[in-house]
Computed example of a mutant assay.
Amino acid sequence: MNKTRESDKSRIRKYAVVVLVCVLIFIAALVILNLWEKRQGTFVGENTAGTTANITVDGEKYVLNKNIQTFLIMGLDKFESDIDDTSYDNDQQADMLLLLVLDDEQKTCNIIQINRDTMVKVGVLGVAGQRINTVTEQIALAHTYGNGREQSCLNTSEAVSGLLDGIKVDHYMSVTMDAVPVLNDLVGGIEVTVLDDFGDYDPTLIKGETVTLKGEQALHYVRGRIGVGDNSNLSRMARQREYMDAFFSKARQLLDGDDSFSADVMTSLAGYMISDCTVSKLQELSKKAGEYELGEIYAMEGEAVVGEEFMEFYPDEAALNSLIAKLFYVKEEE
Rank of each mutant, 00 (worst) to 15 (best):
A142V: 04
A142E: 00
H143G: 03
H143V: 03
H143T: 06
T144C: 12
T144V: 05
Y145R: 11
Y145G: 02
G146Q: 02
N147E: 03
G148R: 04
G148D: 07
G148W: 02
R149L: 11
Q151T: 14
Q151K: 03
S152T: 04
C153L: 10
L154M: 14
N155G: 00
N155R: 04
N155C: 11
T156P: 12
S157G: 15
E158R: 10
E158C: 00
V160F: 05
V160R: 11
S161K: 10
S161V: 05
G162C: 00
G162V: 01
D165K: 15
G166L: 06
I167G: 04
I167R: 05
K168Q: 14
V169I: 09
H171L: 04
H171D: 09
Y172E: 01
M173P: 06
M173I: 15
S174V: 09
S174H: 02
S174T: 15
V175S: 01
T176S: 02
M177P: 02
D178I: 03
D178Y: 11
A179L: 10
A179D: 01
A179W: 00
V180Y: 08
V180K: 07
L183Y: 00
L183S: 00
N184G: 02
D185C: 06
D185N: 13
V187H: 12
V187G: 01
V187N: 12
G189P: 11
G189D: 07
I190G: 07
V192N: 01
T193G: 08
T193P: 01
D196K: 04
D197W: 05
D197Y: 11
D197P: 05
F198V: 07
F198T: 07
D200S: 15
D202W: 09
D202S: 12
P203A: 08
T204E: 12
T204W: 00
L205C: 06
I206M: 12
I206H: 05
K207D: 05
G208R: 13
T210E: 10
T210P: 05
T210G: 04
L213N: 07
L213S: 05
K214C: 12
G215Q: 07
A218E: 05
L219V: 01
L219I: 01
H220P: 00
H220E: 00
Y221S: 03
Y221D: 03
R223W: 09
R223D: 09
G224I: 12
I226K: 12
I226H: 14
G227N: 06
G227E: 04
G227Y: 07
G227L: 08
D230Q: 13
S232D: 02
L234M: 10
S235F: 01
M237N: 10
M237S: 07
R239K: 15
R241Q: 15
R241M: 12
E242P: 06
E242V: 14
E242T: 15
Y243D: 11
F247A: 02
F247C: 01
F248S: 05
S249T: 09
K250T: 13
Q253C: 01
Q253L: 13
L255W: 02
L255R: 08
L255F: 11
D256P: 03
G257W: 03
G257A: 14
D259P: 01
S260T: 06
F261T: 08
A263S: 13
M266D: 05
S268I: 02
S268T: 04
L269H: 04
L269I: 15
L269P: 13
G271W: 12
G271R: 12
